[in-house]
């Protein structure tokens, strides 16, 4: 079995299984912890159930913008670049379509009436390049900024690596730089699998917990009338 066959087959299967199991392990492990009900009389009925904070916290208040703009903007840039490449590049969409078909027996067209849109390779490549540039910028910032340097640990650097690796290898595969396409594709898949395997165990889990954390605070604060 060559590298690509491994990456496409058993590698992907194991990564998927570990990803699914790990994510649920961590989410369920937290969700089933004790939660004491808040018996205090609410100031206002929290009718948004924490949703307001989930939305509000997506951009810093103007009072905080000065010191956080770089992190915020770069964060958005690399996230958007990553997500554009992830969700609008045809081979990726086909992979997700295959997963959706296999797991739920649905097609995007069947559910929404239209096919999932994809973007030309050039745009994906550009988005990836922008994402890589932003990721490098945030890494440099992490190394240079005293606060970030102090609070960073293995998780931060490794999570950075497993995030940039699939984008970089994807770009290399797309443009056939450095090695035969199959090798590059295999490396790309393996880097994605590394991402999937690491995902549940590191800070990448914020992709899920961000909603729970913001929502919890939003719910607690909103009923107090506290500043969100």
């Amino acid at each position: 079995m060559d590298l690509l066959a491994f990456a496409r087959g058993p590698g992907m299967q194991w990564a998927t299984a570990i990803f699914v199991a790990g994510v649920l392990w961590r989410l369920v492990g937290v969700a089933l912890l004790r939660r004491k009900p808040d018996l205090s009389a609410p100031r206002v009925a929290a009718k948004w159930k924490g949703l307001r904070l989930i939305v509000l916290r997506s951009w810093p208040r103007k009072e905080f913008l000065g010191g956080t703009a770089f992190t915020e903007v770069m964060g958005y840039v690399f996230h958007i670049g990553f997500l554009v490449a992830l969700f609008f590049y045809l081979p990726h969409v086909l992979f997700f379509a295959d997963v959706a078909q296999g797991l739920l027996g649905v097609t995007f067209k069947g559910v929404f009436g239209v096919a999932w849109p994809t973007l030309p390779g050039g745009i994906i490549y550009f988005a990836s390049a922008v994402s890589v540039a932003a990721l490098i910028a945030v890494l440099v910032h992490r190394l240079v900024n005293p606060v970030k340097r102090l609070i960073s640990n293995f998780d931060d650097y490794f999570s950075w690596f497993v995030t940039i690796a699939p984008i970089a290898t994807g770009m290399a595969a797309y443009s056939h730089i450095g090695a035969p396409y199959q090798t590059l594709l295999a490396l790309h898949l393996l880097s994605v699998e590394l991402l999937m395997v690491w995902f549940p165990f590191g800070k990448l889990m914020h992709a899920f917990t961000i909603f729970a954390a913001r929502g919890s605070t939003g719910m607690l604060f909103e009923r107090k009338g506290a500043t969100l």
Binding site: M12, Q13, T16, P91, L94, D98, V99, G102
Partner: peptide, 8 residues
């Protein structure tokens, strides 16, 4: 499709 890797 080539991209529809064998995810299980």
């Amino acid at each position: 499709p080539l991209a529809a890797a064998d995810w299980g």
